[in-house]
Design a protein around this nucleic acid. Sequence first.
DNA 1: ATGTTCATTGTGAACGTTCACTGAAAACTA
DNA 2: TAGTTTTCAGTGAACGTTCACAATGAACAT
Lengths: 338, 338
Amino acid sequence: MSDNRRFTMHDVANRAGVSYQTVSRVINHHPHVAQDTRERVLHVIAELGYRPNRAAQLLAGNHSRVLGMTTFALNQYGPAQMVISVEQAAREAGYDLIFANVTDTALESVQAAIHHLLHWEVDGLVFLAPLTGMTPEDLRMLCGDVPLVQIGASGGDGASSAAVDQAHGGRLIAQHLMGLGHTRLAEIRGPAAWVDAQARHQSLLDVLAEAGLEPTASEAGDWTPRSGYEAARALLAKGAAFTALVAGNDQMALGALRALNEAGRRVPQDVSLVGFDDIPEAAYFDPPLTTIRQDFEQLGRQGVAYMIERIANPGAAAQHSRVLPRLIERTSSADVTR
Amino acid sequence: MSDNRRFTMHDVANRAGVSYQTVSRVINHHPHVAQDTRERVLHVIAELGYRPNRAAQLLAGNHSRVLGMTTFALNQYGPAQMVISVEQAAREAGYDLIFANVTDTALESVQAAIHHLLHWEVDGLVFLAPLTGMTPEDLRMLCGDVPLVQIGASGGDGASSAAVDQAHGGRLIAQHLMGLGHTRLAEIRGPAAWVDAQARHQSLLDVLAEAGLEPTASEAGDWTPRSGYEAARALLAKGAAFTALVAGNDQMALGALRALNEAGRRVPQDVSLVGFDDIPEAAYFDPPLTTIRQDFEQLGRQGVAYMIERIANPGAAAQHSRVLPRLIERTSSADVTR
DNA sequence: ATGTTCATTGTGAACGTTCACTGAAAACTA
DNA sequence: TAGTTTTCAGTGAACGTTCACAATGAACAT
């Protein structure tokens, strides 16, 4: 902590010739402060460059204007985008945001992160940890009665949530490919521990089943290009006969693309390839990748909006929104040729 | 804030039959606490699930065990990696980390972020905003005497720094390409406002100049694949004659790759292409991209280490480390053929 | 014995805010 | 006019910690 003592409320109060309480009122936009008094105080605040001490506010008040957010797998496109959009939305709503990173998939890691945030006396908790095996009920238990919003995964009764309708995404892909005449689809799934991966996988299965089909073959990856590459090689090695390949995200699609190339399978002539996410790179793959775009911006905004509502009105029921993803059709998918 | 009142130090003290001060001492690992007293207190702490209130600690203490970090362009690979590694290193050192995102390149934006962090009474400030136009002296002014560490950009006397030796990276690339016989190099630079982009550009110029060469042509992009695509098209449209193309990062290299393909210029037969960053995707481009790998992990770790040192020993001189990047040779670069 | 040090514990005050009251003046109401 | 409400401002006490200092007793040297 630095020597350069910051000004306190009392300094401002003295200079403005009012009591510290009045300064507090001005800061917190209380009504019942005379117009000229307010202006005088505001003027002194600007003059001194005074800004309230967050720690003291937090300690004394019964609301903190701080939101806590768990983060996870920030090196992944989706999570990173959500963090960015939540931070932006929170800032705009006048809330500070503090983060606690969840390092691994173990429950204790999630628990540690949440406890950590709780010790900051946050007004609300934005939960981003798109893993299965953590029910909304578990979360509620951990959080006590702190308002809770889940982002990127569906919530239960206890928590509001904003998520992408992954099932819809899977359906879009299945319908797109079947519409092109494909009946033999292979799949590179994301890690089983991720709800998104599960949802995409399941919806693909469902839609295929409705048409009396099932995937020719399926491998799991870990979201990385490398795992996509290896999964595709495994599929090829098994001799799986497929005319279309669905990857759980764009990065794995890239890896698969390379494996297909090496095996002499041309995309899209021999195999149609689709991904998930629409990362900025996807349009520049060779060929440009057909994929599913998800509006993470919207997710963050919606989640924070729910949070503000819950804080203002703790009794209200949880709200849930499902953002519909969009199919971005590029040239990695085409009519089946045989 | 929730109703579920957390336990306080006094609760622990009562249960353990000691004074609150003793509890405080146990928490802060003070010496001069009897072994059995310590154990008794620790036991009660565990039993009650007590964790100290951060706000109170922050307010009362003259150190906060909190580090502030400015963030910028989190959707970029480099910045995101640095945030991840700093958060990890800070956590391991027992420090909490709070972030303030810098939204645009304006000085006021940086200033706002720093002020914001200062109001949290942080023990130190990790500065990540790899933009030019912000001298270390400016920073010092803004921060008062709070220990300051710059990451990803070189610092001055006032602040320690951990950065990648970008000039070395540029040199590696230039030497690699000249070693392959290339003499006509074109370049797609990063945005001028970024120090990294500048440094890479300048070192390329320098090394070429030493060999009596200069770039055939040069365009600027904004790090996105799209901008790389457009820059490459611009180079081709100008009729620039080059056998090697240096991109400021891997994503722009990807865009350029696509533009070259569309123009019928094969990589590496007609044009050697090199990037910067070694993003996970780079190895799966077609062809796999020759690029420069930077150890961001190391950067974060080193930066936080400097920070800890500075906090412990405020008088000490600033330290600087330059991490040497490495050339990752893949197949996008080859002997010049004509 | 007697002072001197050292390990161990406790006490009161601070940190900078907000909250719950209280009071005075001004503005309505009857 | 008197009573009532409303606006505005101030006072004292929290919030949960750490800090500076004081106090106790044991160990040690003299």
